[in-house]
Nucleic acid binder design. Structure first.
Lengths: 126, 126
DNA sequence: AAATTATTGCAAATGATTTGCAATATTGCA
DNA sequence: TGCAATATTGCAAATCATTTGCAATAATTT
């Protein structure tokens, strides 16, 4: 008799805890560092794809040539403001439904998702 | 007597022409394909960094794990709407100054730049 | 506790981008 | 024009992020 299922394993527990604890967009490597290499980097990547597929994690791009990952559950849909000097990341909330509607109307596209990230200098670094 | 200067060379000419001709965000590889490997991929990359430094080219991220490059001169500041099915890219213009101002006020950051890209289905692919 | 099957770690592959370096091309000046 | 000075190229190899294959291991069902 065949059974299929997703198992709750140590690597998965750990990656989830790392994302929860770090609670900002982090790279796969940063997760690994936080976990002190207790699990293999490959498992971090594999767990992340799982979490992304289950819509528990968002992928965020800051244009550094790598992906960053963030738990979804916490806050609502939001964007980020990154300090180009110290690297601090702040969440940005905004209502963008009218903006999306306007783009949809003008383009006749159906919009499924969007990326929006801001870069600048935080109060301390100005 | 030492002289310093930037030279107008064949590879640079070609990369510029490729960007002009393709006139949408393209990857380094796509530039190379267009140029039929007349120049080395390394030179494409080196020319692109030069053009970026001189603010003639923008880097655009669609989250595919690679960068895309687009000539600045053509249109004004704009964003992109990418069809997730056929890959077609449409430019999106919008006035975002009030949005930026609002984010700056709420965050106390000074915003230097931002990324905004939309993904969805174009009229033909819906 | 055994059998079944999902998951892991490790090594190696892949893809994008960068770097070192000797060979070559461009440019300013005699 | 011709040459020297130096910027730039191509090629090979390095690097970084991410993915894949596979045999060993762990989780789960019975």
């Amino acid at each position: 008799m065949t059974k299929i299922g997703i198992r709750y394993t140590k690597p998965r527990k750990l990656v989830f805890e790392a994302l929860e604890h770090l609670s900002k967009p982090v790279s796969a490597n940063e997760i690994n560092d936080y976990l002190k290499n207790k699990i293999d980097l490959t498992s971090v990547y594999r767990t992340l794809s799982l979490l992304i597929k289950s819509e528990m994690v968002n992928v965020i791009l800051f244009g550094e040539g790598k992906k960053r990952y963030e738990l979804k559950n916490k806050n609502e849909h939001h964007h980020h403001l990154v300090c180009e000097k110290c690297g601090d990341v702040k969440d940005v909330e905004m209502k963008e439904s009218s903006l999306l509607k306007s783009v949809e109307e003008r383009s006749k596209f159906v919009i499924k998702k969007h990326n929006l990230e801001f870069f600048g200098l935080c109060p301390d670094c100005q």
